[in-house]
């Protein structure tokens, strides 16, 4: 494999993927399904962060909100409006699920940006599970609400009859690619951002090895880390937003399958 050889010529060590290793939280050993791992730790950090924002933040129940309460209200309002606008009035029934999903992805992304943190949404297992859950739920909702009419989603009536079968094949493929793209998009964004930060951070050590070249490279790489970090904060929010909005779009397709 390739990683061992990286940077050995210059003495720099790049381990951009180390941050994604799942380790047991206590001691060494194998990671069984029940083992409390760093995944467990950060999952519950997400739960606590959500608790802090949505429950502790609103404990005043004030008519004139405090700062934390207005943040909680803003996120509530944003997701509520999103579900209402995209999935329609009958989609508001699923608002708690979508809110849960949004808070989870948002805090997973944000907490993953803390130094030494573990980003749970950078794992295909986590995002794939979420995306599959969304996909299956939405498909079940579609069939329960519309019965066989749900298949109208694939049979584009506005198109000429001759090309409808072709469109149907494309629609079916794009439908089944949804969970894949949903999960890969989120995990890929997280992996890429964190790995790039790690690579730039790896260059920052050059000044210890080669002071002449390092005096030039290290400040640039530190600036790059800062810039990437700021960009990643934006990406963390946008990816949570996109994940949620796509869930809403899929929900809309399930509730109103006719184009």
């Amino acid at each position: 494999m390739a990683t061992e050889a990286h940077g050995e010529a210059t003495g720099l060590s790049f381990h951009p993927m180390d941050q994604f290793i799942v380790r047991p939280l206590f001691g060494d050993g194998d990671v069984h399904w029940y083992t409390p791992s760093n995944v467990t730790l950060w999952l519950f950090a997400i739960v606590l962060a959500t608790l802090a924002l949505l429950v502790l933040g609103t404990r005043g129940r004030a008519i004139v909100p405090s700062r934390s309460q207005s943040m909680a209200e803003m996120s509530y309002g944003m997701i509520h409006k999103m579900v209402g606008d995209i999935a329609g009035k009958d989609g508001l029934k699923y608002f708690p699920y979508i809110m849960t999903l949004f808070m989870f992805v948002l805090f997973a992304n944000f907490l993953g940006l803390l130094p030494m943190a573990f980003t749970v949404t950078s794992h295909i297992a986590v995002t794939g599970f979420l995306a599959l859950a969304v996909f299956l739920t939405v498909t079940v909702i579609g069939f329960v609400k519309n019965g066989a009419h749900f298949l109208d989603l694939f049979w584009v009536r506005s198109a000429p009859l001759a090309i409808r079968p072709v469109l149907a094949v494309i629609e079916v493929i794009s439908y089944f690619v949804r969970p894949l793209s949903l999960s890969i998009r989120l995990a890929g964004n997280m992996i890429a951002g964190h790995a790039v930060i790690k690579v730039f951070a790896g260059f920052a050590a050059l000044i210890l090895i080669n002071p002449g070249l390092g005096a030039l490279v290290t400040p640039v790489s530190i600036l790059a880390v800062v810039g990437m970090y700021a960009f990643e904060i934006l990406v963390a929010f946008i990816q949570a937003y996109v994940f949620t909005i796509l869930t809403c779009v899929y929900l809309k397709d399930a509730l109103h399958p006719s184009h």
Binding site: T35, L43, A125
Partner: peptide, 10 residues
């Protein structure tokens, strides 16, 4: 090997 752990805790 870590999938089970992640999904369970998730």
């Amino acid at each position: 090997t870590s999938f089970g752990n992640q999904i369970f805790w998730l």
